[in-house]
């Protein structure tokens, strides 16, 4: 969404944002999860932050994930945008996920920027060379949202230079759809996502893409339980960016990123992920850093039901 240049804050600064409640909420969630006494389970994780594979959450399991992105801003203030994900395996073929987004901009303020509700469906019964997944998401956010969970249309770093007090006044109700194509071959996962997003108010469809490839460092596991074995680490890379709109399908004026990704899956069920990303053109942030910690609660629905017996 274009903003007048006069509204953009100028000059990077490095003071702390006013408040970041997400850190405390996230830690509280993880504490509650560990107090609930779930058995350690390990999901079929891919290390991507933007791209999706065809691997869904196991049915009945709830994964709580605390994510964050740090962005270096040209002609503006750097920011940290955390978000919490609650990913639930409703069926073996259907995963539903709820997001809460925040952001803190250095030398500006910190704000809650909205929520998202996404659903992923596997339409085919069996595995194939290429496995499709249909993705539908509703977003209720403000223009101050900086989580960059996807990049579409003509999204650019200039959008994030707008002061929070002005950006938060624009509410966005958006429908996002994705066609996820994903393959597994000899330990590698290769995923391609085609994104189409629509502001339910007035804007045209915006398009984007994300491509990822990853592999565990060791394919077979060792008999011993270990934290630092190669089998617990996944390495990969993802590339993502915008593809213009239905009015102007182009790469000119869009932003693009390349990011190596690494994940560390502990036997206790905790997974850490990190990904430094690099902007590939002048419309992109020159550098972003994403990180996350997640914990999976097995048989969540069963545990909730047992509370009411």
């Amino acid at each position: 969404m274009p903003f007048p240049e006069s509204l953009r804050s100028l000059g990077p600064s490095r003071s702390r944002p006013n408040r970041l409640p997400l850190t405390y909420i996230g830690l509280l969630c993880l504490l509650c999860a560990s107090l609930a006494g779930p058995r350690a389970v390990a999901a079929q994780e891919t290390p991507y932050f933007v791209a999706y594979s065809h691997h869904l959450e196991e049915p009945g399991n709830l994964e709580i994930e605390l994510n964050s992105i740090y962005g270096v801003q040209h002609a503006g203030n750097d920011f940290i945008a955390p978000w919490v994900e609650f990913e639930y395996g409703a069926k073996a073929w259907w995963t539903t996920e709820f997001y809460l987004d925040w952001q803190g901009t250095f030398n500006d303020s910190a704000r809650f920027t909205g929520f998202r509700w996404e659903n992923r469906f596997r339409p085919l019964r069996h595995e194939h060379w290429i496995n499709p997944v249909l993705y539908v998401e509703y977003e209720n956010t403000t223009a101050a949202d900086k989580t960059m969970i996807e990049v579409v249309g003509f999204d650019s770093q200039a959008d994030h230079a707008v002061p929070n007090s002005i950006a938060q006044m624009e509410h966005l109700h958006e429908l996002e759809t994705k066609l996820i194509l994903s393959s597994d071959y000899q330990g590698w996962n290769i995923s391609e996502n085609f994104i189409a997003e629509k502001n339910l108010g007035h804007d045209p469809w915006e398009f984007g893409y994300a491509v990822g490839a990853s592999r565990p460092l060791r394919l077979a596991v060792t008999p011993e339980s270990c934290n630092f074995c190669r089998e617990n680490f996944l390495l990969g890379a993802e590339v993502y960016g915008g593809l213009g709109t239905s009015w102007n399908f182009t790469q000119i004026g869009t932003s693009h990123y390349a990011a190596p990704v690494v994940a560390w899956q502990l036997p206790s069920g905790v997974t850490f992920r990190a990904s430094p990303g690099f902007g590939l053109n002048s419309n992109s942030h020159p550098f972003i850093l994403r990180w996350s910690v997640s914990y999976e609660i097995d048989r969540f629905a069963h545990r909730v039901r047992s509370l009411f017996r």
């Binding site: 079929q44 691997h55 073996a92 496995n131 000899q186 330990g187 077979a220």
Partner: peptide, 19 residues
């Protein structure tokens, strides 16, 4: 590898073949 998605058994294709 394939599971039985309509009956609640997830596909474990995300695990490498060796596993």
């Amino acid at each position: 590898r394939n599971g039985n998605l309509w009956r609640g058994m997830p596909a474990w294709s995300g695990l490498p073949e060796q596993r």
